[in-house]
């Protein structure tokens, strides 16, 4: 047994368990619908029109369960390479979701994965894609024989996946009896100081007419600040209230109510102009 085939053999049960867990958790989320509109805040359902959100979530869950079963029992290249396609597409979807909807979770494990998509979630799907590629290359099907070497590699894969899982932070918070971010009071002054230390602030500070916001409000874990800017425009900042290096986003809204620059959201696939005149 080569080193590569040992690594692939160790990856297979982890991939199967991850797919099965993801599928079951998604189905449970659809079944439970803990709050109205839960699905509209979770990927991949958020990318679909509302009426397709539930079918999309169910379809995604069923695909995951079928792929997990295929890896275990079907000895065919298709059963080994379809997970590669699935995780590669998932990586792209998460990357796109991070740019388009920075406020929604990946939904990888249903409503447990409601933390906004970050590099860790994307890193996890990259790692899963790599594991699937190894399994495809080494043509492994079914559960491997447990040896010390396989167990060691499996431990390594699990550690990597756990390190890339934002859901773990929630488990730690739960153990530390910490209230969720959206229920913790946070003075606006602290969010403002976080904003002023951010790159987004420095990028727009020159165009602001005043240092004091003309409006500010808080919604869940985001605090929004609106500053008047040159040319009758307004700069809107959104500051994430949790995390050590808070996510700060900015957008410039022109006098005509159109978004003129999308700050660090920039990208060709974004809506170029969002009417915001009220």
């Amino acid at each position: 047994m080569t080193v590569l085939s040992t690594i692939a053999a160790a990856a297979l049960p982890i991939l199967v368990v991850t797919l099965a867990l993801g599928g079951v958790a998604k189905l449970a989320t659809v079944e439970r619908q803990a709050s109205p509109g839960t699905l509209t805040r979770l990927g991949p359902a958020v990318l679909m029109p509302e009426r397709f959100a539930k079918p999309a979530m169910i379809a995604c869950a069923l695909v995951e369960l079928v792929l997990a079963a295929g890896l275990l029992v079907v000895d065919h290249p298709a059963a080994r390479w379809l997970p590669v396609v699935f995780f590669a597409v998932a990586t792209y979807v998460l990357w796109d979701l991070r740019r388009r909807r920075p406020d929604v979770g990946c939904g990888c494990f249903g409503d447990v994965s409601d933390t906004p998509v970050g590099l860790r979630s994307i890193g996890r799907t990259v790692a899963l894609t790599a594991m699937a590629v190894l399994i495809g290359l080494e043509e492994i099907t079914g559960l491997p024989q447990v040896t010390a070497e396989t167990a060691l590699w499996a431990g390594g894969w699990v550690a990597l996946l756990l390190a890339c899982s934002p859901e773990i932070d929630q488990v730690v918070s739960r153990l530390r009896h910490r209230a969720p971010c959206e229920q913790r009071p946070m003075p606006p002054a602290r969010a403002l100081s976080r904003l002023r230390a951010s790159a987004a602030w420095h990028a727009h500070a020159g165009s602001l007419l005043t240092d004091e916001p003309s409006d500010m409000w808080r919604e869940l874990c985001w605090r929004f600040f609106v500053f008047p800017a040159r040319g009758d425009a307004e700069v809107v900042f959104a500051v994430r209230l949790d995390g050590r290096r808070p996510n700060v986003r900015a957008v410039v809204v022109g006098a005509d109510g159109q978004v003129t620059t999308a700050g660090d959201l920039g990208g060709a696939s974004l809506r170029e102009s969002t009417p915001v005149s009220a």
Binding site: R99, V236, A238, R249, L265, P275, V276
Partner: peptide, 11 residues
Amino acid sequence: RRKLAAAVLGR
């Protein structure tokens, strides 16, 4: 407010 928040978060 809703429109400004939607613009900055892309929703």
